[in-house]
C-alpha cells in the first residue's frame, strides 16, 4: 500500500505493508530514530510523534493511517523556533537523564504548549505529561520545566 505523507516538511512516498506500524517505518525505513520503542501498547509515550500537530503513539498507529498527514518527529521539531525555550527549560531543570523518554516528552509538551493547552500551575503540568512515562527523573524536573514554560 502507498503511504504518502509529509515528514518533517518533506514529502515522502513509500510502499508499505498493511500491517506495518508507523514507528517501524519512521525508524527502520526513514532512519528517524528519535521516536523510541518501549512498551508497544500506548502506555509509555516514548514513541510519540505529531500528526497534524497532535501527539500520537506511533507504536499503535498503522503506517497507512498516516497517509495524507503532516508528521513531525523530534528531528524536525528540534529545528523549529518553539523548540529553543523547551530545550532551555528542560536542560536547566535536568528534565532528561537517560533521555529515552525525552523525545516523546518534548513533542508532547511542544504540541500542547503551541496550542495553548497547558494550564499554568502544577495540575496543568501534570495533565500535560500524564500520558508519558519516565523511569529516571521521578517527573519532578519535567513538571518544573513544563510549569515554567506554561507560565511564561
Amino acid at each position: 500500500m502507498i503511504l504518502a505523507a509529509t515528514v518533517n516538511g518533506q514529502a515522502v512516498r513509500l510502499d508499505v505493508e498493511p500491517q506495518e506500524l508507523l514507528l517501524d517505518v519512521l525508524r527502520e525505513r526513514l532512519g528517524l530514530t528519535g521516536a523510541k520503542r518501549s512498551c508497544d501498547v500506548q502506555v509509555c509515550g516514548t514513541c510519540t510523534v505529531l500528526a497534524d500537530g497532535q501527539p500520537i503513539s506511533s507504536c499503535c498507529t498503522l503506517a497507512v493511517d498516516a497517509d495524507g498527514r503532516e508528521l513531525t518527529t523530534i528531528e524536525g521539531f528540534a529545528s523549529q523556533p518553539e523548540f529553543a525555550a523547551i530545550e532551555e527549560a528542560f536542560t536547566r531543570q535536568v528534565a532528561s537523564q537517560c533521555g529515552f523518554c525525552t523525545p516523546g516528552m518534548v513533542l508532547t509538551v511542544g504540541s500542547l504548549l503551541g496550542q495553548g493547552r497547558i494550564e499554568p500551575g502544577e495540575e496543568g503540568a501534570r495533565r500535560a505529561v500524564e500520558g508519558n512515562i519516565c523511569r529516571c527523573t521521578g517527573y519532578r524536573a519535567i513538571l518544573d520545566a513544563v510549569r515554567e514554560l506554561a507560565e511564561r
Binding site: 528519535g34 528531528e75 528540534a78 536542560t91
Partner: peptide, 17 residues
C-alpha cells in the same frame, strides 16, 4: 548542565536499537 542534554533533547542520542 548535562553535557548530553542537547543530543538527548534533539533526539540525536543513539541507543543500540
Amino acid at each position: 548542565t548535562r553535557v548530553d542534554s542537547a543530543v538527548k533533547l534533539r533526539g540525536e542520542a543513539r541507543y543500540v536499537g
